[in-house]
Every structure is written in C-alpha cells, then in structure tokens.
Design a binder for these strands. Structure first.
Lengths: 225, 225
DNA sequence: TCAAAAGTGTTTCTCTTACACCCATGT
DNA sequence: ACATGGGTGTAAGAGAAACACTTTTGA
C-alpha cells in the first residue's frame, strides 16, 4: 500500500509560445495541479476532478504520461497531460488555491519537488505526438485560421514551418476543412476559418516533415531511451 | 493509499516470431511476472527483483509502459517492458512458480485479469520504438549476424524487409559495426558477426521506411490516441 | 498609401523503393 | 553437385524542401 498521487501537466499556446498552467497553495511554491487518489477512484477520474476544482478547467481530454516514484519509493505519482485552447479557458482558483497562472514553458518559477521534470516530460510528449496526431486541434478553439494553426505547430515544435508547404499539407490531409466564414481582426487580409476535418492524419505521409523537425528539436531524446 | 502492483511484459524473438514470457502459479491460470510493490521500494526495483525471483532473468533494462487501474480504482498496476535475447536466457521458476514459458505473442493461453491487454500494449510499444530506437539490439546477444538482426526486425514489425536496403541502412547509420569474426553454423556461407555500434539511430532519416511499416502494421493505433 | 497578414505553384533534389545474381560453406 | 544462407549495386519514381509575389483589409 502506498499513497498514489496524480498531477496534471496542462499545456496551451499563447503568443507563439507554449505555456503551462501552474498553481500556488498557501505558503507553498508553485506546483502542478494534482491530488492524492482515494481508493476506489480511478486515476483519470481523480485527475479530472482535481483539475476542475483547483483551476476551473472542465472536461478536457487527458492522456497518461508516466508514473514517477516519490520520496524513494514511499509513494507514486501518475502524471497526466492535458492540452487546452488557452485563450478560451476561464481560470477559477479553487478553495485553498492562492493563484492559478499560465507560464511560458521555458520561463517558469521554481517548482516544488520534481515538478519541473514532470513538466519537461509533458513537453517532450507533445512534441513527439505532433508528428502523428492532430494535437494542434486540441490547442485551438473550435474554429481557427490556418495562420493560427501554423503558429501552434511552430510553438510546439520550436521550429519554423514553410507557410505554403504547411497549408498544402494540412488541407490535402483533410485534417481541417473550411467553414466558409472568415474573420478580420486588426489590419491584414481577413483569414478564412477552418474546423477539424476528421481526416486521418497519419495517412498522409507528408507530415513526416514534422517528424523531421522533431528529430532536430532539442529535448527530443527524453522519450527515446 | 492503494495497493500498487507492477507487472512485466518480457519480450523475445524466436523462430521469426515475437514471444512473451508467462508464468503459472499454483491453481492459477497463466499470468505476467509481477509483484505488489512494498512502500519504500521503487517501481523499477520491485519489478527487477520480481523478475529475477520468479523467472531467473537478471538485470535487464526495463522501460515503464503504462499504469492501469485495477478493480475500478481499488488499486493500480504499473506495467513495464523488458526486451531480452531469448535464446540466451536460462529460465528458473522461482519458489511458488509452477512453470515459466515462452509463448508466441499471438498464440498464448488465456490470461488472468487484464493481462492480455497489458501484453498487447507492450507489443505496440515495441513496434513503435522500432522506428527510432535500436531495440533489436536488446533482443539479440552481444554479437549477431545481419541476417539475425533483420529477422528480429521482421518479427517485431510483422513485415518483410528488403535485404539489400536493410543492410545498407543499418551499416550507414552506424547502428552496428563488424567484429571481423564470422560464424558458420549449418550450410550456407558463414555470416559476418556484428555488434552494437552506438551509432545514432535517429540521425539516419532512412529508417523512416520502418516507420512506414509500422504505420501499415495492425494494432499501431493503440499508441496514437 | 502604407503596414500587415493571407493566400498561392513550381522546381530541384534527396530519399525510397524495387529488383537479380554470385559467393562461400556444409552435406 | 546441390542446397542453403550471405552478400552486393543501380535505376526509376515519389516525396520533401526551398523559393517570391499578389491580394485584401485596417489605420
């Protein structure tokens, strides 16, 4: 018998950079959202309810990341990954939570325990998944421009992509489809709006160019042991 | 507080097929090696010692696979993956273990609980890793022929590879290096022996052909949620 | 009229694939 | 001598990468 904890790495993109959601408890340094999992509760259920109570984020898709030993085997912590459309999330610090904030992934305050390692693991996973799963769609609201989609990829991969190649690829793959509407905010030609197209991402060999970007990206070794 | 268990999917290759190591306890059906992890013991340490005690396999490299809920959240089970050079492993059923045996991965007896799902998860992971990590080297003894290496890949990927392309790729990548020695067993020209070359596997884009084979392979969706 | 973002095709080159025969040994 | 596995190169096609200008709007 051991204490089983779960923590959640919540990732979003803002201003061309990936951000992580952190929270501060009274008298404590910054930490990841998380909770001890009671017996009789599943890991995912515990993670979802902790996330909602502590940060106000409801019903996202969670993916299990890794299970870490804590305190030399005294307990374990099951880390989860959660991708959200940052701009659309209203944050609501729960009872006992002093503050909830987004921090740029590589410019965050000191974290409690091994949380920094957990965070980095989450970032590596997102990068690796970008090659074969349409993760960027989880990081954007329901409708978005192709420019926004590209920015999300560039932030996640930390690598610039060629606009023409990118547009051709995502359209040919059927990853996105035009809604017909368009949006003008600020100067510049209004951009067409798109939504998830349900196209099979991995069918398109073209996206291997993103796999290459990943291979070149820093920190990609973490998942490749 | 919950019971934390660990189980190990041990995989090897024999006769051109992937095999898994299973064991039988008295009055029980076949199951994966595993143990309840005592407080104060790390997951990996518990898994390693259970593996040695129950099957006689010592000191292999373990990789964490996934953490499963057990009995609706009553406990958790942290699955590990272990790749071994099957032919070189002497099996020694530990105290209380009736039998330890290798079974072809897709022709195994009924298993206790969710072990079949855990096993399948392990197989998917091996396949996925084959694209970017030299896993085949773990599945072979220290020195081996290129023919043996190719057979291992074909078994793992469940897909035939072109001999000339395969040899060119692994040699160019520096994955293996010739020992200079050669080996003649049975009829046929003696094969040169190779050892791990420490070459950076992922540097070589060529190995994408294996990534494709994976994409075509059955069951590859499991890891792509 | 200018600044700012959106949108659009083609060419070159590299990588992938497919493919067939001779070599060295054991029986 | 024959059966068995080891070992070798090339050519054609597909995919990836690099590349610059026109369009439409707000200020």
């Amino acid at each position: 018998m051991k204490p089983v904890r779960t923590e959640i790495v919540v990732i979003g993109v803002r201003e061309r950079r990936t951000h992580a959601l952190l929270l501060r408890l009274p008298g404590s340094v910054w930490a990841l959202p998380g909770v001890d999992v009671p017996a009789g509760t599943t890991l995912e259920a515990a993670a979802l309810s902790a996330l909602e109570e502590q940060t106000g984020i409801r019903g996202p898709h969670l993916e299990q990341l890794y299970t870490f030993d804590r305190d030399g085997g005294a307990g374990v912590c099951v880390a989860h990954l959660c991708l959200v459309a940052l701009e659309r999330q209203a944050l609501a610090p729960g009872p006992g939570v002093v503050e909830v904030r987004w921090f740029p992934m590589d410019d965050h305050p000191p974290l409690a325990g091994d949380a920094a390692a957990v965070l980095e693991y989450g970032r590596s996973r997102v990068r690796a998944k970008a090659a074969y799963a349409p993760i960027a769609l989880q990081l954007l609201p329901e409708s978005f421009t192709l420019g926004e989609l590209q920015v999300v990829y560039e932030a996640v991969l930390d690598h610039d992509l060629d606009t023409r190649n990118f547009r051709r690829d995502v359209l040919q793959a059927g990853i996105v489809e035009a809604t017909g509407a368009s949006r003008a905010d600020g100067p510049g030609r209004p951009a067409g709006l798109y939504r998830s197209g349900g196209g099979d991402f991995q069918v398109l060999a073209r996206e291997r160019r993103i796999a290459r970007a990943i291979a070149r990206a820093p920190g990609s070794d973490a998942l490749r042991r």
